[in-house]
Design a protein around this nucleic acid. Structure first.
Lengths: 142, 142
DNA sequence: ACAACCGATTTCTTTTTGCAACCGGTTTTT
DNA sequence: AAAAACCGGTTGCAAAAAGAAATCGGTTGT
């Protein structure tokens, strides 16, 4: 029994935004990609102060969408490690495209802007390298 | 008297999502970029069926953000033409990054996917060409 | 004169978000 | 061994946003 979701349209942009077109989802992805966060409490501590019920909701959705996976932390029975899947890692170009626009038009923090600019300046190759590192960290591939 | 908005954070992703991190804003931008829509009634007719009050709200916000501009249509006093600014046109890479992800992971309409794939296949150069065309159409530059 | 069309606005209902307190269990500190 | 801190959540309620539908006054084409 597969769930064949019915969409309002089958336009690429709509189908993407249907998954991550809200204020919080991509910020969680950013936390994982840029800040290396992997635990519930780490996400809670981000500057934007996501509420714990919304965080729970989004993590469940992201897992259901196959964008993140949950694993038990061996060193701590209650800790859960969140990892990106390949589908999640492939959101990186979107994260970078947003960063590039904001660096130009928004009052971004200098330090954070510099980090983004560095990857932008490196072009497609630098971006691929970051994604390679994410694969190693989240999928355990070498 | 400038309005110096206070943000929850000055992270690039957050500052971008603060502007277009909702279900509708980028769909309006898509309508303009991909489907060449320029009038209120055209946006209303999109497949996703945005409500007119929300459309009004978003167009006002986009104008206030300097992403679109309003002009009177010479041939029809009541008609308003919405145009993208350079700041708006520079959202195109985000629109394309979303499309690329969706083409891989979502059940996109074949015809629409093909159009996206064509631009993706053309690389950075094809993307720049589309943006050049948008500039000509919306900014009147040659 | 009249119907169709223009960009909205108004009213109302439903859904989503935000906030704060709290939960049972686990680990660390004293 | 007891207390404190930390773990990923859950609950209940208020506020904000979105959705649906009817309507508006002015403009245009017939």
């Amino acid at each position: 029994m597969e769930k064949k979701k019915v969409y309002k349209s089958y336009c690429p942009q709509y189908l993407g935004l249907d998954v991550f077109g809200d204020k919080w989802t991509l910020l969680i992805i950013r936390d994982m990609m840029i800040d290396g966060k992997r635990h519930f409490r780490e996400f809670l501590q981000s500057e934007e102060k996501i509420a714990s019920n919304i965080l729970t909701n989004r993590l469940n959705m992201l897992e259901a969408e196959g964008i993140v996976t949950r694993h038990e932390d061996d060193s701590h029975k209650q800790k859960i490690i969140y990892s990106l899947t390949q589908k999640g890692i492939d959101l990186f170009p979107i994260i970078m495209a947003i960063a590039e626009w904001s660096v130009t038009y928004q009052p971004v923090d200098k330090e954070k802007a510099d980090r983004a600019k560095q990857i932008i300046a490196g072009g497609a190759e630098a971006q691929k390298e970051v994604m390679r590192i994410l694969r190693r960290q989240h999928l355990g591939k070498f």
